[in-house]
Amino acid sequence: MTKTLFERLGGREGISTIVDDTVENHMNNTAVNARFLPLKEQPERLAIIKNHTIDFFVAGSGGPNNYKGKDMVTAHTGMNISPTEYMHVMDDIFMALDKNKIDEDSKKDVLAILWSLKGMMIRK
């Protein structure tokens, strides 16, 4: 039997680690960190964003659907994310996947998910 992407990413615990590593990458990425650094001064808000991200990715990767956040268009409206910023964010995610030794097929599946969301986030 084939494992779900959720299982291949290490379940909720693995996805949580990947999200934590990704946020750290965003904080260190000069192309996007202006959007993320202010969250260091708002730890409660950062925790909410991380938890929504974890729940969203758990549900989208075949795990339990406990996501109660906004849809992607609503969540990103007003942010005016550029295509370049989106690509930097994707790079940060893939650095986190590499750090966590996620296999190539799973990374391709993550890429497909991220690519499917792009139009919901760019220039909203």
Rank of each mutant, 00 (worst) to 15 (best):
G10T: 09
V110P: 11
N29Q: 11
F56C: 01
E104T: 05
M27W: 00
K50M: 09
I18D: 01
K118P: 01
D98F: 01
M121P: 03
K40V: 11
H52V: 03
T77M: 11
L117I: 07
F6V: 09
K70A: 10
T84M: 15
I15T: 11
L37V: 07
G78Y: 01
A59K: 02
T74E: 07
G119M: 07
I54F: 04
M79I: 01
D105Y: 08
N80M: 08
A75I: 10
E44L: 05
N65A: 14
G11E: 13
K118C: 01
T22C: 13
K101C: 00
N100I: 01
K124G: 04
E104M: 02
E104V: 02
Y86G: 01
L97G: 10
V58A: 05
K68R: 14
M121S: 06
D103M: 08
A59Q: 00
F57P: 06
P64Q: 15
H76M: 06
V19H: 10
M72K: 14
D98H: 03
T84F: 15
P43V: 06
M120I: 15
D109F: 04
T22M: 12
T84Q: 15
K70S: 12
E41F: 12
L9R: 12
N33K: 02
M87P: 14
N80T: 04
M90D: 13
R123K: 15
I48A: 14
E24N: 04
E13N: 11
G62L: 02
I113P: 04
I122E: 01
P83Q: 02
N28V: 04
S106Q: 11
K99D: 01
T4W: 03
H52N: 10
P83G: 04
G11I: 11
S116A: 12
K101L: 00
N51K: 06
N25A: 05
S82H: 15
D20M: 01
I15C: 09
A34R: 02
M95Y: 14
W115K: 13
R12K: 13
R45K: 14
F36A: 14
E13I: 05
K108I: 04
K124L: 08
Y67R: 14
F94C: 09
V23F: 06
T74Y: 06
G10F: 10
V73L: 14
G69L: 06
Q42D: 05
H88G: 15
L9V: 09
I18G: 02
N100C: 00
E24G: 03
G14E: 12
F36P: 12
P83C: 02
F57R: 05
N25C: 03
A59R: 01
S82D: 14
L97F: 07
G14Y: 05
V23M: 06
M90N: 14
I93Y: 10
R45D: 06
I113E: 03
P38W: 12
R12V: 08
V58T: 06
N29H: 04
W115P: 11
